[in-house]
Design a protein around this nucleic acid. Structure first.
Lengths: 168, 168
DNA sequence: TTTACTGTACCGGCTGGACGGTTTAGTGGT
DNA sequence: ACCACTAAACCGTCCAGCCGGTACAGTAAA
């Protein structure tokens, strides 16, 4: 699917060179196609960014749903660590791409509200769950800016401690 | 000081209208001065953004240093809640402004590495301190996107629980 | 105490270039 | 014949940075 390749190219461009490098010509070149080809799939730059945002949210929701724990927070925790450890941290990049138009950020705001509210009051210890979710959020942020901050053993300990918080 | 007013105007523009609204003309107009006047204080757009980033980091470091606790993490926690509760959450806005050039983000990356490393191994429970700092980071993020997510009592409980984590 | 000069703080019009988007003409697989 | 593009020219808009001014405060010799 060429569409996916174009979204990939746009994300790579964003994380390598920053949001001002996201031009239609650059995305097309990186994806190995022409500007016309890009505009065939995404009729405007806005549509391209919207596509990135939607894919990001969908993929993460799927990853959360694919975990097999008994609470949303535990699934969210596992999904976050899976994503962060895999190294494909496009969240930050996509967000910077969308930061030009508040309108494009709306789905992301909505998703974030959901991620931090969903099933919170049904958990054994809502405050602990809240802290764990916030720490996951922080991890996304920190790792995006400084990928080398934590090594595998740190990740493992961190995940264990966060899981402990949810079962005390 | 006109300089500060220009930085304020730039930040306001970023958080109200997104990063693409950050043009020299718009900043000047919002600050009530001319484009020439703006370029007198900041010789380029890059310099303006650099100014915002630097002020952000300095102010937060000062806020941390002004707290009177016995560990860095506790000071960091108190500073975060003070900033977040005051409603002046410019961090996200400034970052989106700088996201055009990776070069402009460098000081922020450096600061973030510092905030998440400083005195960590000297704390009674480094893993707990790490979690608290990550949760603070997450709080910045979440509150920037969804300011109405938490009310005062939630903040109070959250801060108490995070403080508890540091003294068990 | 007038004059001449210097530096600071600012104004606002202009321009060159980049970028988003359109169009047109054409290609190759199915 | 249609889909999924390619290639390239082109247009209008927007914006950063430049530049030639202006106003004013100090200062210091004559």
């Amino acid at each position: 699917m060429r569409r996916e390749g174009l979204l990939d190219a746009a994300e790579e461009l964003l994380s390598d060179q920053g949001s001002s490098a996201l031009t239609l010509a650059a995305v097309a070149e990186r994806a190995g196609c022409s500007k016309g080809g890009l505009l065939y799939h995404f009729s405007s730059k806005e549509a391209l960014i919207k596509g990135m945002v939607e894919r990001l949210i969908e993929e993460f929701d799927e990853l959360v749903a694919a975990q097999g724990h008994d609470t949303y927070t535990k699934n969210y925790l596992a999904a976050t660590f899976a994503a962060v450890r895999s190294g494909r941290i496009r969240r930050w990049a996509v967000v910077t791409g969308a930061s030009g138009n508040p309108y494009l950020l709306a789905p992301l705001r909505e998703a974030m509200a959901r991620w931090h509210r969903e099933g919170l009051d049904g958990e054994p210890d809502p405050a602990a769950a809240q802290i764990v979710r916030l720490a996951c959020e922080g991890l996304w942020d920190v790792v995006s800016h400084d990928p080398g901050l934590y090594d595998d053993s740190r990740y493992a300990e961190l995940e264990r401690r966060l899981l402990d918080l949810l079962s005390e």
